[in-house]
Design a protein around this nucleic acid. Structure first.
Lengths: 224, 224
DNA sequence: ATTTGTTGTGACTACACTGTGACATCGCAA
DNA sequence: TTGCGATGTCACAGTGTAGTCACAACAAAT
């Protein structure tokens, strides 16, 4: 899957690229609206991620121009504020979805997935690991058939672990993906939430799934 | 399975065709209501997807004419707004179900499946969940046999829940589908209507069906 | 013109969730 | 074993999110 990112801020661009690449997407990037328009029209992409605020040319204009040039690639618009005019203008210009900064990279990936799914066959909406099952559409979670009530953040965190089983996830990665992209690790939120998650999914089980990797981070695993 | 699509907007037509083709359907497409009527009457199809808004001839008229010409193929009507008159008029004209734009391709496929499963579209459109029954044509609702009087908005809201049982529906989704596509979530209409619906369908029951998923939205479910 | 019903708003209340800081505990290295 | 940094847990306060009510605006029917 090829994704084109049009974003001038290098930090954002880097984070987005990395996030998408980690999920197996082929990423191409340009900082200029003009170049983006050319690239979008020239090569075939499966999705375009487009910032509304660009130095040379307004993102909405880029979007409109692409549509005018019969480019039907789905477009995900990034807006800086929750400004409704932007949203409406973007959708009118032919965008398919929009996302307000700042956001967790995970959320971007989720949206990208959803947009790509619209065209393609459906992707399974159930994540499994061991006897844990998480249904993304129902927003329900079970362990060994027993329902587990999770809050929004707990759900997001567990989802990220389920999407990256056996892999060690660092604090900074979790912060960036589950909280937001500008996450600063001067607090212990992550420890707190891992603790809460453990209390809900590992409590009273002989086999703890959410394991600590000292000095690094955490991993979801059923091995020792 | 052969599906005939009558839709003038090329973007929609493309999305619908692709979505259905991906699921193994044989798709035929025309942009004109007139041609659609001819095609529908001439060749045998298993299903017709029909837009109400067509440049040359009203979709409702096309539907009525097809039925007059003894074409009993199930018809899925596409309406542009959450306009109730369109829906009722469509069903009265002989359509079997309707879908409000914009929709996810997934949803369309689900409806198409449901209609085809139902066999020939002689059966009236009734939605059920648990002991709730909703008759779309008669616009009546019952729970455990007891009739429940709903206003238009309440009806539309419950209908959307019944169409997506167990699935968590976000505020923005509900706003877009039940209110209108440019819905802004700066009010509490949705909370108010959910509250009103609950008062009518869940009041005095031990098992509440309309459940809150904090931080996300609502779902119609009988599980915990 | 009056009545009746529906829709959406604003205010208020209640409560769940989030993140913080303090403190306890663990694990590794010397 | 001791010490220290890293991790875990707890209770709390602030915030945000949801539920309910009364009401105003509007429409439809009489």
């Amino acid at each position: 899957m090829r994704v084109l990112i049009i974003e001038d801020n290098p930090r954002f661009a880097e984070l987005i690229s990395r996030g998408l690449r980690d999920h197996g997407y082929d990423v191409e990037h340009t900082a200029s609206g003009h170049d983006g328009e050319q690239l979008g029209a020239l090569k075939a992409h499966d999705l375009i991620v487009l910032d509304v605020m660009l130095p040379d040319q307004d993102g909405i204009l880029v979007c409109r121009n692409l549509r005018r040039r019969k480019v039907s690639t789905p477009i995900l618009m990034l807006t800086t504020l929750a400004a409704t005019e932007d949203k409406v203008a973007g959708l009118n210009a032919g965008a398919d979805d929009y996302l307000t900064k700042p956001f967790a990279t995970d959320e971007l990936v989720a949206r990208v997935r959803a947009l790509l799914r619209r065209g393609q066959g459906t992707e399974s909406a159930v994540l499994k690991f061991g006897d844990i099952e998480m249904d993304l559409l129902k927003r329900s979670t079970t362990r060994a058939g027993q329902p587990i009530r999770l809050t929004a953040k707990e759900f997001a965190l567990l989802e990220y672990f389920l999407r990256n089983p056996h892999r060690v996830l660092t604090r900074s990665l979790l912060g960036e993906r589950v909280w937001d992209m500008n996450f600063e690790d001067d607090s212990n939120v992550i420890e707190v939430y891992v603790s809460r998650l453990r209390a809900k999914i590992d409590k009273g089980r002989e086999q703890p799934l959410l394991q600590t990797v000292i000095g690094t981070g955490y991993k979801l695993s059923d091995e020792t």
